[in-house]
Write a protein that binds this DNA or RNA. Structure first.
Lengths: 376, 376
DNA sequence: GATCTTGATGTTACCGCTCACACCATACCG
DNA sequence: CGGTATGGTGTGAGCGGTAACATCAAGATC
């Protein structure tokens, strides 16, 4: 606090060193033991006298000691850190997966470092992998809808565990994946509409170069085909409400359209608005089904029938797969490919064709008792 | 694959060493220089002969060398890593801030480590701070709507930079903050409705213990007061569509309600549904305004008039504040408090009271030319 | 009672990097 | 031509931990 004449400061005073907290040696000195004993206490080594342990713990508390992870990582070669490569993490799905992964990682005693990519081209992904590698992460989870990402994961330095989560099936299965069965989800939606009596089902798809979108298209097409129904053309678009709105405008003009399966809930939102503006009532004249079951879907007008995927569970499962891989350290067993089953959530946006559901102007969503289109 | 008799394994074989990549010494040897010269090349030190530099770079490429960040951190005491404490990161707002921060950090050459908290009590937050400290982060950004968080930031080890982003004003201003002016946002919304001719404006608020919710309530109340309008009671709820729906049901029964300002867009979604089910038309009979401008708001039925806050910009600004703080290393200047102005986005959910807007059944959102309720 | 175990602790050598400094050529200077 | 600056490079120490080994007292074993 005395000489504040910096610039020409006495070099003996260690001029601009970051204030460093106490280290193991400080704790050791205060507790009257060697630093190694402190280390043993920290790592819960059994051979420490309870009395000594108590003394060390007390010293750690007194000095507010935090172990230095960098030093530990350096010598053990284990950073206890996982890397996540994220894309479009502002959307509900990716954000939920991210959250699920982080929460599970924390519980497992791992730290999480995030690298988002501005787009999914090879370079960006490799760049993200590189940044994570520098941080000596022990494994990488890629929120990875496109194959560029999973194949890029093959590039990771040998011995580094990795898993792709939430995309489609991969061509080569060298990289483990965790995802939902998009085809089955599409089938649930489509069959639901067919069962209601719709002669066929139209589809407003996501971007066709995303395996998720492609698989949903295929599941839908296949279901129609199996049922002997006409397969209308698909015009793939984006995952956005805007895209749904635009395509919905076209479908709304065609009076033969009575059922629309949408690639996700946002598309469905756009479709709903297009139908509304065209004066076509949902579900009386047209039924609509979404995909994802975002929290908002239950409050759309009308509450959206949709296919739920459990993003948080995807995150948790992907972490488990990754940790398994880390434990095995590369040897043994072929890569896991976990496929979770999606679930149809029926709400008020679907009905038999050409039939009102007697709900016009009535409070509280129609036939379903017990509150506002509840989830269970 | 031979001796699977573990437990008695031959210790001479270096059993479980992680495959380590090449290190500086390897590069040095291959390039025929000392490790220090390699370090100089890596850190772009000027005093290296171009020819030597080239040789080193070539060696690095040949060996696929990656510098070990843990070692570097250990000696420099700079991890080039920032910590983010996130809460409810599955929601659009927090997720966007997270994204904005990460993108900006990457550009600034920083890594990002995320610690989400299950709830906002003091313990959880301190725990998150602790985990980040262990990773020797150089600064912490808390996506921190509640004061518990910002005050917990005061607990961070001395010399560690921190900033709270996206919450309300803080009581003590010791911790820098970046946020929007919630009061001004509420005023924009309320005044807009008053200007349209509504005698007063009702408010469906968020949880009152969140400063954001509180400040919006105050802004709304103050605006009504200044205009000499009646100030109806507020019943604070959650930030969810469900909460909006429940409170919307109550308001829908009251024929004197002609204008509703909602704490956020999700609440507005619920209110819209409640009004619809009660047979009250929006905006003909009741006007509704939201807050946030989520991407979906434009496609609500009707497209939602709302107050936009630029979450990504909040993220970027908070990063800048944090980096400034790091550069200053604690000395000088009182903490920054950046307050951004929100912006009213008028769409189709607001109109003069008791007057239709001549848009029933017409295609494409009413009076506004040029597409579906465009953002501009 | 000498030897062997075993528990509790200390000593030492690194992990991979950067920093401070030493060193050696040249180049420049009076 | 001796002395000083300066560019290019090497050497050694040490950041804060952990692993392996050394040490040493006390109890178990014969």
């Amino acid at each position: 606090m005395n000489s504040s004449t910096d610039g020409d400061a006495d070099p003996a005073e260690a001029p601009s060193a970051r204030p460093r907290g106490s280290v193991m040696r400080d704790v050791a000195r205060l507790a009257g033991v060697s630093h190694q004993t402190v280390s043993r206490v920290l790592n819960e080594h059994p051979n420490v006298r309870p009395e000594t342990r108590a003394r060390v713990l007390e010293a750690m508390r007194a000095l507010n000691y935090r172990r230095n992870l960098a030093a530990r990582t350096l010598v053990t070669r284990r950073s206890r850190t996982l890397g996540i490569i994220g894309f479009e993490t502002t959307l509900f799905g990716p954000a939920s997966m991210l959250y699920g992964i982080e929460a599970a990682a924390r519980q497992a005693g791992y730290f999480v470092s995030v690298a988002t990519v501005p787009n999914l081209d090879r370079r960006s992904v490799l760049d993200a992998v590189d940044r994570l590698t520098q941080q000596s992460v022990e494994g990488i989870i890629a929120i990875a809808p496109k194959p560029t990402v999973t194949t890029a994961l093959l590039q990771v330095p040998a011995g580094l565990a990795s898993v792709g989560v939430g995309g489609g099936a991969t061509d080569d299965d060298a990289v483990p994946t965790v995802r939902i069965d998009n085809g089955a989800g599409a089938r649930l939606a489509t069959q639901h509409l067919l069962d209601l009596g719709h002669p066929t089902v139209h589809h407003v798809a996501g971007p066709i170069d995303w395996p998720e979108a492609y698989e949903r298209i295929e599941g839908w097409r296949r279901t129609l085909y199996d049922a002997g129904a006409v397969v209308p053309p698909v015009a793939p678009g984006a995952w956005t409400a805007r895209s749904g709105y635009e395509q919905g405008m076209v479908l709304a003009r065609d009076p033969s359209v009575t059922a629309i399966f949408c690639g996700n809930d946002q598309i469905a939102l756009g479709v709903l608005r297009a139908l509304h503006e065209a004066g076509r009532r949902v579900p009386e004249q047209v039924s609509v089904v979404g995909f994802d079951d975002t929290p908002d879907a239950e409050y759309f007008l009308p509450p959206l029938t949709t296919v739920r995927q459990d993003f948080a569970e995807l995150g948790r499962r992907s972490l488990r797969v990754l940790l398994d891989q880390i434990d095995r350290q590369g040897r043994g067993r072929s890569p896991d490919h976990v496929v979770l089953a999606p679930e149809l959530v029926v709400r008020a946006s679907t009905a038999m064709p050409g039939r009102a559901r007697r709900r016009r102007g009535r409070p509280s969503g129609g036939a379903r008792p017990g509150g506002p289109g509840g989830r269970g």
